[in-house]
């Protein structure tokens, strides 16, 4: 008797979200199978996961030497740094407005927006713009960014339950997508998605359930991401059918072990990446170019 593997097919489908416009547009999501199961099950994974490389709006102070080294000559120049990421083959640039945080340099919103514009004009790939999750400051910063790059369809985030309204409204007015972020909690994630969906359609929302590093609670983050996909694809819950972003580069490299040894750090980020690929991430935010190359090679 020959073995016949069971073939699953599901009725739910992840929303397709396009970030950027014209030549620099990328599309994520659209799958109706679980992560990497298109070879076994009935369905399609039309847009393979994309990788964003991280750029900061101020020179990083505590990065391990081996992760800073590839960017050292450009670390104080975000536009040049972003260009470096493009040359390395990144699908998107993840631009982190850390300096805008009141606990950092408290950069004014106008200045932050101007910098985003400069960086955007220096590259020809789409851009994700993240603030630090500061409930009060983020809306002002992201609204200015939305306005400064009106119509360019950036991915702006994170929006959280305390401040989703002004940011989503700014995104709607200026034609951008937003990241809906809930703290490793699938129920709160759904609630925020429901509220956000009253302002923006599902093809303008990406979910960030938070992605911790290997050894630092990755099990919880993996489960929530995996369940999000189950609920959206298998149980057809429209409020959980947005694509997912896994933002773990910084989570990996802030830890002691990756900072002590380069090979260990590389392996750490790589294994973390593989985990989130398996959990169903549609975009991954990474840091070390070496790991980027390895993981990119796995996907394509």
């Amino acid at each position: 008797m020959t073995f016949k593997a069971p073939v699953e097919s599901y009725k739910g489908k992840v929303a397709e979200v396009t970030i950027g416009k014209g030549k620099r547009a990328v599309t994520i999501g659209g799958e109706n199978v679980l992560a990497l199961n298109q070879a076994f099950d009935e369905g399609a994974f039309p847009h393979p996961p994309k990788i964003a490389l991280e750029v900061w709006d101020m020179e990083p102070q505590n990065w391990a030497p081996w992760v800073l080294e590839p960017y050292k000559d450009v670390a104080a120049d975000p536009a040049a740094w972003a260009k470096r990421c493009e040359e390395l083959g990144a699908d998107l640039v993840y631009f982190y407005l850390i300096s805008a945080d009141p606990n950092e340099k408290d950069t004014p919103p106008e200045q932050a927006a101007e910098l985003v514009k400069q960086v955007y004009e220096a590259i020809s790939i789409p851009m994700i713009v993240y603030t630090t999750g500061n409930e009060n400051k983020d809306p002002a910063v992201l609204a200015k960014v939305a306005e400064a790059l009106s119509g360019e369809n950036l991915l702006l985030g994170p929006v959280i339950k305390e401040n989703f309204e002004p940011i989503a409204n700014a995104a709607k007015e200026h034609g951008h997508c937003v990241v809906s972020q809930a703290p490793v909690d699938i129920n709160l994630q759904k609630e925020l998605n429901v509220k956000l969906s009253r302002i923006l359609s599902g093809d303008r929302i990406v979910l960030d359930p938070l992605a911790s590093a290997l050894g630092y609670g990755i099990e919880y983050c993996f489960s929530v991401m995996e369940r999000t996909k189950h609920v959206g694809i298998q149980f057809q819950d429209a409020m959980m059918q947005m694509p997912v972003i896994a933002n773990f580069g910084g989570e990996v490299w802030k830890n002691k072990e990756p900072k002590e040894r380069e090979e260990l750090g590389i392996a750490w980020e790589e294994v973390t990446a593989i985990n989130y690929l398996l959990a169903g991430a549609n975009i991954m935010v990474m840091r070390h170019p070496e790991v980027f190359k390895i993981v990119k090679g796995m996907i394509t």
């Binding site: 699938i186 129920n187 709160l188 994630q189 759904k190 609630e191 429901v194 509220k195 609920v231 149980f235 819950d237 409020m239 959980m240």
Partner: peptide, 12 residues
């Protein structure tokens, strides 16, 4: 258990 719980379950 057919629908994922959220505080907004009555609104959708």
């Amino acid at each position: 258990g057919e629908i994922l719980y959220s505080h907004t379950w009555l609104e959708t």
